[in-house]
Write a protein that binds this DNA or RNA. Structure first.
Lengths: 197, 197
DNA sequence: TGCAAATACATGCAAGCTGTATGTAAGGTG
DNA sequence: CACCTTACATACAGCTTGCATGTATTTGCA
């Protein structure tokens, strides 16, 4: 059995592997130090590749951050979908989705990446677009159903405001706020809106 | 009348003047380009001073940003205080304060500085501490008065969540959201919370 | 199977930025 | 009027980013 003979990997495999290593290393450093304080030499050292690889896979440092953030948002979205897709009734789906959101947000670094860094690095619009999937649609639908008198403009606004409250709750929890309290208060808030008119 | 003879200014005057010029130039560039994309050489060129002056007045670039952000937060706080201090009853003070907040947030650049850049540059905690004065206390007091059964922990949480909603409303308005709609929906939201229980 | 082309990555380099150290001029003080 | 302090200016070292160019591996194809 020949040793040291590097297995002939396909380009796709090589590519996927280095890309994954870059994403992982970048995520850790972005979480720990923030985007601005993280240098690309540090990222590639941690990933075990060179800066050439980084700039081959990503347009620039910001593009790498975008990829990290998108992956993170997708993980959240997937978790919420997995928890809610079995729930049929919209009322219950909202509360389930809410709980799933808070669960997902407990994963270390998510809040830092998506709520603190992303708005500044990618801009507000891109940042909200990232979290667009995070239960926002379920929320909008629930509100729309419960408040048929409201215009879609009003529903959109309300969705944004409640979504912001969810985000802030996650943020505060990360910074030591009490999980149970914030979940309670958040549910109370949504509940009152739903039965309001 | 002697011309060109530079008036003998006091140190305090010199100091205040350069500092003001730096703050003004920095504000413009931070708003236009964001913190990371703004270079100190550009700031001092715009201010008509040298980098030496900048680093004499401020510890580093972040410290300059902090000063700009603090000035901005104070302007908002002053505006809200001016509008609300004549209003006696807490209920009315809240609605007046809310309107004053939205008015204040229309000043160009404020949202960019305080809601987009500040959290990433100064950290979430410092950023919320900055806006701590922006009607947050009136809000907390109003909630506390209207919801006597709630624990102070719950009041704090609710205050944070509604405060986040206010912030998001300002953000969305800046990005083209309809001012009237957001004000309406925000008032509805607060109103429902107040009469809830 | 062997060779050319494409892909994936490595290395070297130029430009720019930050923060500090050191130099100078103006203002305050006894 | 001399000394000290404050306010600023200039020079420099160390990094950082992104690109340009070089090399190795893989793939397509005759």
């Amino acid at each position: 059995m020949t040793v040291g003979k590097p297995a002939r990997r396909s380009q796709a495999d090589r590519r996927a592997e280095t890309r994954a290593k870059l994403l992982e290393a970048a995520r850790e450093l972005f979480v720990e130090l923030g985007f601005a304080e993280t240098a690309t030499p540090d990222i590639v050292r941690k990933a075990g590749v060179t800066r050439g690889a980084l700039y081959h896979h990503f347009k620039d440092k910001t593009d790498l951050f975008r990829a990290v953030a998108e992956e993170e948002a997708k993980a959240i979205s997937d978790h919420i979908d997995k928890e809610t897709h079995i729930v049929a009734e919209p009322e219950q789906a909202m509360v389930t989705g809410s709980n799933a959101f808070f669960e997902a947000m407990l994963v270390p670094g998510r809040v830092r990446l998506l709520m603190e860094e992303a708005p500044a690095v990618l801009g507000h619009s891109a940042a909200v677009a990232l979290t667009r999937a995070n239960g926002t649609e379920e929320l909008r639908e629930g509100l729309s159903r419960a408040l048929p008198e409201h215009s879609s403009k009003q529903i959109d606004a309300l969705t944004n405001l409640l979504s912001a409250a969810f985000d802030r709750a996650a943020l505060e929890i990360t910074y030591g706020g009490d999980l149970v309290t914030y979940k309670e208060v958040m549910h109370q808030l949504v509940g009152e809106v739903l039965k309001g008119k």
